[in-house]
Computed example of a mutant assay.
Amino acid sequence: MKILKYILIAVFVLGALFAAAFFIKSNSKSPITFKTESPFKTNIEQKTVATGKVVPEEEIEVKPQVTGIIEKIFVEEGKEVRSGDLIAKIKVVPNEQSLNGARGRVRNAEITLRNAKIDFDRNKDIFDKGVISQQDFQNIQLRYDQAKQELQNARNDLQIIRQGSTGGAQAITNIRASVSGTILEIPVEEGDQVIQSNNFNAGTTVATIADMKKMIFEGKVDEGEVGKLQVGMPLKVSLGAIEDQEFEAKLKFIAPKGNEEQGAVQFRIEGDVYLEENFYVRAGYSANASLVLDKKEDVLAIKEALLQFDKETNEPYVEISTGDQTFERRDIKTGISDGVNIEVLEGLVEGDKIKVWNQTEPKKKEGEDDDEAGEEVAD
């Protein structure tokens, strides 16, 4: 009986040891079987994207030369006009103080002319009798002619203040287009008061005109990329309002001074956009411009997601397969990147197998154990 008892105890101990060994072996196995990928040859373009909008190259603001009230507007926004076309009519409302001063100057000129005429008539009779010299008479005649001219000038000034011009009796001034193009905006309405453009006042804008066939891209780039740009570089401009269409453009301006926006320094850029006739582009469309900063063809590359970085030196490295699910670290040197693929300068060859290190453990299906789930990620 004692021998049987010892045999049972031995079997129990051996079973426990076997179960413990199986449990340790099962848990020592990684739940993830890592995939591997190899380097490949490809073309890489390093790009940057500038956000902005498409606007006309030139926008001309039409302003009145007299102060008054808009009596009638003859055009609408979006209408094509030619240089000289009538845009609006202004009814002049004279300033009361200026009007009163102009009337006073006219009366003074009339008084001066009347006295000059009396003096001229009296001295003409004396000159005809030979009492005064010809030079004295010419001086008197000069004052008379100047008085007549002064009265004419005063009357013209009064008419300008009343009517806006000396060309007619009607108190209306025409506003005409100064260039050919499209009416972009009419910020005034009939009945609005407008102020003339002069040396001390920019004046009221009656209409804005632009040539919609000459459009430019206005955008901003970060200071970290502006140093790589050069005037004349090609751009690809895509518009938010026109899907699946890119327009060719050429960089023509890079701002010499940047502006800080939300903690980053941004530099303004401009590029001529080459429009296609079958697309109508409106002023102010939001746009993105893609610029190629660097390009390399047929270079050795890997997916950028395969890279790992040393915590202390921040240098890139990858893990290379040396056997069945065994890997070793290998430091590499990288070149340009397009955000998906990155050029490899040193450290790898095409046949290397690189660990896809950022895999996640697959979700177990109902009734599936860890070994079965791990096999789904096998190479």
Rank of each mutant, 00 (worst) to 15 (best):
I140Q: 04
A171D: 09
K72W: 00
I111R: 08
G130E: 02
N108Y: 03
G130N: 08
R114E: 15
L142N: 12
V75K: 07
D128R: 09
V106M: 06
D121T: 03
Q152M: 11
D145W: 00
I175P: 00
G164S: 04
Y144E: 11
V81P: 01
V106P: 00
E77S: 03
I126H: 00
E76M: 02
I118F: 06
D85I: 03
G167Q: 12
Q138Y: 04
G130S: 05
N156H: 06
V93I: 15
G167T: 11
I140K: 07
I160N: 04
G104V: 09
R107H: 08
N153V: 12
I111M: 09
N156E: 14
K129S: 15
N100G: 01
R143I: 07
T112P: 00
E77Q: 02
E150S: 05
R122D: 09
N95M: 12
A102S: 11
V75I: 15
Q135N: 13
L151R: 11
A147C: 08
A171M: 11
R176S: 10
D119Y: 03
S133Q: 10
I118E: 12
I73Q: 04
E80R: 08
E71D: 07
G168I: 07
Q138L: 12
N115C: 05
R105M: 14
R176V: 12
A154M: 09
L113D: 06
Q163T: 13
I161Y: 14
K124Q: 08
L99P: 01
V106C: 02
R155T: 05
I87C: 06
N174H: 04
F137R: 03
K117E: 15
E71M: 00
N156G: 02
I172K: 01
A88G: 08
E77W: 00
T166F: 12
G164L: 08
D136A: 15
N95T: 09
G104S: 07
N139R: 10
L158V: 06
G164W: 09
K129W: 10
S83D: 06
R176M: 15
N139W: 05
E77R: 01
K89N: 02
R105N: 15
K124M: 09
A154Q: 10
A169P: 00
I90N: 01
L113N: 06
Q159M: 11
D121Y: 04
Q138I: 13
K79H: 03
